[in-house]
Design a protein around this nucleic acid. Structure first.
Length: 808
RNA sequence: GCCGGGGUGGCGAAACUGGUAGACGCAAGGGACUUAAAAUCCCUCGGUCGUUUAGACCAUGCGGGUUCGAGUCCCGCCCCCGGCACCA
């Protein structure tokens, strides 16, 4: 009899068995007690499965198995987010067509995924690059188009010169491409957008209804960036033009000494006077040459030029100069501001640089003397130098001045958002083609539903296209040229593909029936099985995938295609596993492969070690030094259950161990429920240690151990369960329950303090009265010693816990 | 700059609504078994003082405070991680 369990044999045996019996392929027609447990699907870019994947998939499967044992009908699907740039780049690099390389990678990753031993329902597997799937991504586009939520527009967009495509706002981080880190450029291009801004308020409100991490909700709130304020109009003196301005501080209008409009503002050329036109043109050019990253740097000195024109303050009727400067952004508000240099840091810097007047119109609450030549006075206070509004609190000022503007038709209350529409066009090959045809007489024509999918052509030489800013699809004549579905005349296809985030914004719907051909999904199934009950994935998608998916569901709900608005009821983010303090990545060459660990210790040990390392939402730095400890522990449990230790297995009951068992069940249950896997494992270890101290244990104690271990080490547990003579899978057996009465330990340790300092402890039966506790405490020699010559003033007693004596 | 989350032994970490700080594990040291090693089992393990014991003092990033009692609550700082950032 071998002392060490043969992980390879056991894991292969059970994986094979689960697979053969289609153990976790479930019939969704019955949704009673349903639980949809979802993890973010994987991205086959050529990398193998790394520790990060395991950290996402292992613990989430533990949670799902626990739920299954609690009697839920758990649906745990897995698939591939197979379109996208990394896959395309990988394919180009290796000279293989992305369809082929993707297929190979998926095949390899599937084998790796199976080794985790998760309950994936492989019948529901999907692949977003499969025409069977992207047909319906295109269909989704058409639905949004019908609803007026997809539109093409010429707008300044983010261009990544390295990825050779435009990017959505969400994919630009600190002026750099989210994928490759290259500085993005601004380009004026006609692109397709999804009107996510129409849902700004609902996306905000919905956050109150879902159980998501606080920080993620906060990130989405900040990203949407709702701000309430006033829109007002300045007339341009002597011209038939008005400038629209959004402000949150209209109370400072008496301190406005200039106007600044963004260099890209459409009105700029109209208002600029002839004598200033050269300067303004030069300025615009200099701004265009500035990189986006340089432009958003806040500590850069302000630049700008005077346009020669003046605007009329709608409240004071004063004329103030109109300037242009790149610190005012085109993308936010109306791209124009009025400058109140006394009370805004940026305006103050601008006015100081260009010698514009600075007026104080807000007095701080503390009436402090302010010197506006030296620094700005931002913040709250009382209105001064504002004629009839003097003395008002700034908040009242906002209301009153907005009212006056409104009565004159010069302004109104308004709400502004930071959120921009979702730019979905990509000038790349490996994605779902946008199903649109351009016709000279009919204009923009959607591809009729019955003509879907618009198949991605294969006759394209991707290598030839390297470095070109045009979409690869434009190279294919057979793809490009098409008859207009409306008039039959010659038309051209849209050559851009869709952002892969479109693919992933609805995959969780398709999982319920990935081969359904009547529609994108079977409504009956989807409305029964969704929303997703528990979603687990990285927080890096907080303002991308997680926002887009919510938006898409809301739109589909409005189109009456779904009966729910929020796709993910509960969300949990696993932490990040770093290596030497930095995120693992191929480019840094610090990716740790899980494969050797699986080889040496097995999947049960490995996934359990990942959970034991620390809190699941915190991740941590990778260090394999403790993995042996988990392996040892599993061996200990294995030997104990198989009677390979000095501890006898008999039928006698053991009061103390039974109590420990109930306590363990209680704590482990609560810990797994809240994803506190590390402490759950500690509790099981304590339970095993406790049994090792005994001379004999009974079968029930051991069976409960196997059940508790099952979600963590599913293969080993199944094997032991079978060896205990049970027919059928352990995972069809119910999770153990506990009895609070039995779980209570008989004796407890009471801490005795004097003036809050620990001076001793004693053991006593639980539930004793305060008097008994005090008397027992006073018996302790060390307490007697400390009490000598002192008077006892008060005894503080915390039942079953502590006695504290106050003495003098 | 603003918004989150953190900072506890040599290391990963525990500590429920304020109540014995360091559970559980790693590493380390000692012992048992063994011809030997591995494996296994048992013991010790925050620091200083105390020969040992008993015990005392110090200790949860730093400085204050509230409390009988603070890792936990309050005020002020420092550092690390993540997000946002000229957003009007």
């Amino acid at each position: 009899m071998s002392e060490i369990f043969d992980h390879k044999k056991i894991e292969e045996k059970w994986q094979e068995k689960w697979r053969e019996e289609k153990k976790y392929n479930i019939d969704l027609s019955d949704s009673e007690n349903k639980l949809y447990a979802l993890v973010m699907f994987s991205y086959p870019s050529g990398d193998k499965l790394h520790i990060g994947h395991w950290y996402n998939y292992g613990p989430s499967d533990t949670w799902a198995r626990f739920k299954k044992m609690q009697g839920f009908k758990v649906f745990e699907p897995m698939g591939f987010d197979a379109f996208g740039l990394p896959a395309e780049n990988y394919a180009i690099k290796h000279g293989i067509h992305p369809a082929v390389s993707t297929r190979n990678n998926i095949e390899y990753m599937t084998t790796q995924l199976r080794r985790i031993g998760a309950m994936y329902d492989w019948d529901k597997y999907l692949n977003t690059s499969d025409p069977e799937y992207y047909k319906w991504t295109q269909w989704l586009f058409l639905k949004l188009f019908e609803m007026g939520l997809a539109h093409r527009e010429k707008a300044p967009v983010n261009w990544c010169p390295s990825c050779l495509t435009v990017l959505a706002n969400e994919q630009v981080r600190e002026g750099k491409c989210e994928r490759c880190g290259t500085d993005v450029e601004r380009k004026e291009l006609s692109q397709w957008f999804f009107k996510i801004t129409k849902y700004s308020d609902r996306l905000l409100e919905g956050l109150d209804k879902i159980n998501w991490p606080k920080s993620t909700k906060m990130m989405q709130r900040n990203w949407i960036g709702r701000s309430e304020g006033t829109t007002l109009f300045f007339e341009v003196a002597g011209q038939d033009e008005t400038i629209e301005i959004f402000t949150t501080r209209v109370d400072t209008i008496y301190g406005a000494t200039f106007i600044v409009i963004a260099p890209e503002h459409h009105i700029l050329n109209h208002v600029t006077t002839d004598d200033k036109s050269k300067e303004v043109t030069e300025y615009i050019e200099s701004v265009q040459n500035r990189s986006e990253i340089e432009r958003i740097t806040t500590d850069r000195e302000k630049t700008g030029v005077f346009t020669g024109a003046y605007a009329v303050n709608p409240i004071t009727k004063e004329k103030i100069p109109i300037w242009t400067s790149d610190f005012v952004l085109t993308g936010y508000g109306s791209g124009a501001i009025f400058g109140t240099p006394g009370h805004d840091q940026r305006d103050w810097e601008f006015a100081t640089k260009f010698n514009l007047p600075i007026i104080q119109v807000i007095e701080p609450y503390n009436k402090e003397e302010v010197d506006l030549t030296k620094s700005v006075c931002s913040g709250e206070g009382i209105l001064i130098n504002s004629e009839s509004y003097n003395g008002l609190d700034y908040k009242e000022g906002i209301v009153k001045i907005t009212e006056e503007l409104e009565s004159q038709g010069k302004g109104h209350q308004s709400v502004n958002y930071r959120l921009r529409d979702w730019l979905i066009s990509r000038q790349r090959y490996w994605g779902a083609p946008i199903p649109i045809i351009y016709c000279d007489s009919c204009g923009t024509v959607p591809v009729p539903e019955e003509d879907l999918p618009v198949i991605l052509p294969e006759d394209i030489d991707l290598e030839k296209n390297i470095g070109s800013e045009n979409s690869p699809l434009a190279e294919s004549d057979s793809f490009l040229n098409v008859d207009c579905p409306k008039c039959g005349l010659k038309g051209r296809r849209e050559v851009d593909t869709m952002d892969t985030f479109v693919d992933s914004s609805w995959y969780f719907l398709r999982y319920t029936n990935p081969h359904y051909s009547e529609g994108a999904w079977d409504s009956e199934l989807v409305n029964k099985w969704l929303p997703v009950d528990q979603y687990i994935g990285g927080q890096d998608h907080a303002t991308m995938h997680l926002l887009y998916a919510r938006f898409i569901c809301m739109a589909l709900y409005d189109k009456k295609l779904l009966n729910f608005e929020e796709p993910f009821t509960n969300l949990f983010h696993q932490g990040i596993i770093t290596k030497d303090g930095v995120k693992m990545s191929k480019s840094k060459d610090n990716v740790v492969s899980p494969d050797p660990f699986i080889e040496n210790y097995g999947s049960d040990t490995f996934r359990m070690y990942l959970m034991f390392m620390g809190p699941y939402d915190e991740g941590g730095d990778w260090n394999d030094s403790g993995i042996l400890g988990i392996h040892r522990f599993l061996n200990r449990a294995w030997r104990l259950c198989r009677g390979e230790t000095d501890i006898n297995i008999n039928d006698n009951s053991n009061k103390n161990l039974t109590s420990v068992m109930h306590r363990t069940i209680k704590e482990v249950t609560n810990d797994i429920q809240d994803m506190r896997f590390n402490t759950a494992i500690s509790r099981i270890m304590e339970y095993v240690n406790e049994m090792y101290k005994a001379e004999a244990v009974n079968k029930d104690l051991l069976e409960k151990l196997i059940l508790l271990l099952a979600p963590f080490a599913p293969h080993l547990s199944e094997e032991l369960w079978e060896q205990f003579g049970h027919k059928g899978s352990l995972f069809d057996h119910r999770w153990p329950e506990w009895d609070d009465e039995i779980a209570k330990s008989e004796t407890i340790t009471v801490a005795v303090q004097i003036l809050g300092k620990l001076r001793g402890t004693f053991e006593i039966k639980s539930g004793e009265s305060d008097d008994v506790l005090v008397d027992s405490a006073l018996e302790l020699p060390n307490i007697k010693k400390h009490m000598e010559g002192k008077t006892l003033l008060k005894s503080i007693v915390i039942k079953d816990k502590l006695v504290n004596f106050l003495i003098k």
